[in-house]
Design a protein around this nucleic acid. Structure first.
Length: 575
RNA sequence: GCGCUUGUAGCUCAACCGGAUAGAGCAUCGGCCUUCUAAGCCGAGGGUUGCAGGUUCGAGUCCUGCCAAGCGUGCCA
């Protein structure tokens, strides 16, 4: 049940019954201030303007056509012609009971399910995952979970980079130390160092460099020995990724991996298809697509190059092949690409060329879910103190360690294993939430102290609210189900209303692929709960009130758990 | 040159197809632990929403022009 949508429908119908043009929307929103009720309709004024009538008089006519008996306590005209709706407390409490008795918290599934292909994480397997992969991985994972929850068919695609010239260098280095199996396993345990070692040989040893280049050709021509070596390297690198995904509580598995190399055999036909559609033109030896829509004020068109003058293909070609595959084989109706904002021109080109070439129908909804760069305190891209890239594994270790220190400080009596477990959820949750709670389009400043202060709008705040509720339940003993919810105190009403708005938060997060909207909601919910917790004692209240408040606490816990789960963040019974 | 993105409190960020008095957290200051976990709660101060115009009942939000920053822009991904 999405209350906003429900009221919007009701008021919109009344609006049209009162004489507004068909299709006029009531624009119902949550009220901006408590004295304006629970919801306000903003569309009446504009509709009255269109009809050239007095907004307040028109609003009265709309109310005459609006029947919210049993739902609204009062419906009133305010200001220049707003309609303020105060919901009935009995309606709110009955909705809360319904949510409590529903598996899905009474959240509606979409009536227009899409097959959404979501491309996220997509690291390059030549190196170890670093902080540059963090945002795509956790934002994409949250969006995938949210869309799945709202009833869409979600197909995850981890478009890993497993092909390219660096592999010649890596495999050659690997081959040289393969004789000693033990040593190889050890060296591959740190892929970053392995890459650096191979790179150093490549740069300083001309013979090695030549062998590496020859080996790229051997690999690409399908030499079985080299393919075997390559497969071995890829397996190990993927295992590194899976370890990270596991620690991060990200749902990607090996089944979701659809590597670049999988499209190798499609690339030439992509170029042929473009030619068939008359999109291809040769320029300075390269095969290009020039589209008018990429023409600037200066009259120049930025082309998309799909084949180099030496005959090699580019990532644009691979992306087009992937697009075609996602339509033909996966039946995608909506495609989301959770990729760095710097690729926005590239994504626009892929989408435009893909549609012109008929790789996907015009109706397919293709979206670049862009996000900003992760910055350090100084406003430059996030690096280690010595200027190197930060390995994701190290970053997560630090988060867990810092959280462990804090848990130990706050709760020294818990045994160590317990504190480790709590620290894992708190540390990882804090890292993810800090990112997810921000509007993804702007650059993101990563700061340990802000993130792991564990105060204010952070994952631990939400986890703490949940842990407090669990503590109450432990003390309350058996929880009687299905007890009536009585709303008397302002804090109870506000909490209930907020609980019932979970559906609205999920819908807006799904619509805009914006997990931060869900974060905002959960933070406000936890805040409402904290307020309720302080002002409405539960266990010491009389039975009727105690049971009622326990129901509210229970629904709050279910909502926080579900909401955090959609973000890929765990809850804790104690912390 | 052209294009994309961003500019809101000292700092990090919100503000839901334009809505009523622009909200939080951190930091600062002041209160609250014999009462369900103080990782909490209550309160105070802090703003010309980069600048200038425009559109209208109403603009942080839309349009135009400037300013500033970042990124991208034919054979890396």
């Amino acid at each position: 049940m999405n209350i906003r949508n429900f009221l919007d429908n009701q008021v919109s119908q009344a609006l049209q019954a009162a004489g507004a043009k068909p299709g006029t929307s009531a624009i119902v929103k949550q009220s901006s201030r408590p004295e304006f009720g629970h919801y306000q309709a903003n569309g009446v004024i504009g509709a009255a303007k269109q009809l050239k009538t007095n907004p307040r008089e028109f609003a009265a006519k709309v109310i005459d056509n609006l029947d919210l008996s049993g739902i609204a306590e009062t419906v009133e005209i305010a200001g220049p012609g707003f309609i303020n709706i105060h919901l009935s407390q009995t309606w709110l409490s009955s909705l809360a009971s319904e949510a409590l008795n529903s598996e899905s918290l009474n959240i509606d599934k979409t009536d227009k399910p899409d097959t959404v292909v979501i491309d996220y994480s997509s690291p390059n397997l030549a190196k170890e995952m670093h902080v540059g992969h963090l945002r795509s991985t956790i934002i994409g994972d949250a969006i995938a979970r949210i869309l799945e929850f709202t009833g869409h068919t979600v197909i995850r695609q981890n478009h890993v980079g497993d092909w390219g010239t660096q592999f010649g260098m890596l495999l050659t280095h690997m081959q040289d130390i393969e004789q000693d199996d033990q040593s190889l396993t050890m060296q591959l345990a740190d892929l970053e160092q392995f890459y650096q070692a191979a790179k150093q040989r490549f740069d300083s040893d001309a013979d090695f460099a030549q062998t590496a280049r020859d080996n790229v050709v051997r690999l690409q021509s399908g030499d079985p020995e080299y393919l075997k070596l390559w497969q071995q390297f890829i397996d190990i690198s993927l295992q590194h990724c899976e370890d990270i995904y596991h620690h991060l509580n990200v749902l990607l598995t090996r089944n979701d991996v659809m590597p670049e190399s999988a499209y190798n055999n499609d690339l030439s036909s992509v170029v042929e298809d473009l030619n068939t559609h008359g999109l291809l033109s040769e320029d300075q030896g390269a095969q290009c697509v020039f589209l008018d829509e990429f023409k600037g004020k200066d009259g120049k068109i930025i082309p998309m190059i799909v084949q180099k003058s030496d005959g090699g293909y580019l990532y644009a070609t691979t992306d087009l092949a992937a697009l075609r595959y996602r339509h033909k084989t996966l039946d995608m109706t909506r495609g989301l690409y959770v990729i760095d904002a710097r690729q926005s021109l590239h994504m626009k080109q892929v989408f435009a060329v893909g549609k012109h070439a008929g790789f996907v129908p015009q109706s397919t909804q293709l979206e670049h879910i862009a996000f900003g760069t992760m910055m350090g305190d100084d406003g430059t891209p996030f690096k280690t103190r010595s200027g190197g890239t930060v390995k994701l594994a190290d970053l997560l270790d630090e988060a867990r360690q810092r959280a462990f220190d804090l848990v130990t400080l706050k709760n020294p009596d818990l045994d160590e294993q317990n504190r480790r477990d709590i620290a894992n959820s708190v540390g990882i949750g804090a890292v993810k939430y800090a990112d997810l709670s921000k509007n993804r389009t702007s650059d993101y400043i990563f700061n340990w102290d802000t993130m792991l202060s564990f105060e204010g709008n952070t994952a631990p705040y939400l986890q703490y609210a949940y842990a407090r509720i669990q503590s109450i339940f432990r003390k309350a003993g058996n929880l009687s189900q299905n007890h009536a919810i009585e709303l008397n105190e302002a804090a109870e009403i506000q909490l209930t209303l907020k609980l019932l708005q979970f559906s609205e938060a999920i819908d807006s997060a799904a619509k805009d692929s914006a997990p931060n909207l869900l974060c905002n909601y959960l933070y406000e919910l936890a805040g409402q709960f904290m307020h309720f917790y302080e002002s409405c004692p539960i266990l010491s209240a009389t039975d009727a009130i105690k049971n009622s408040r326990l129901q509210l606490a229970n629904l709050t816990a279910n909502t926080i758990r579900t909401g955090l789960d959609l973000l890929g963040i765990a809850v804790l019974d104690r912390m």
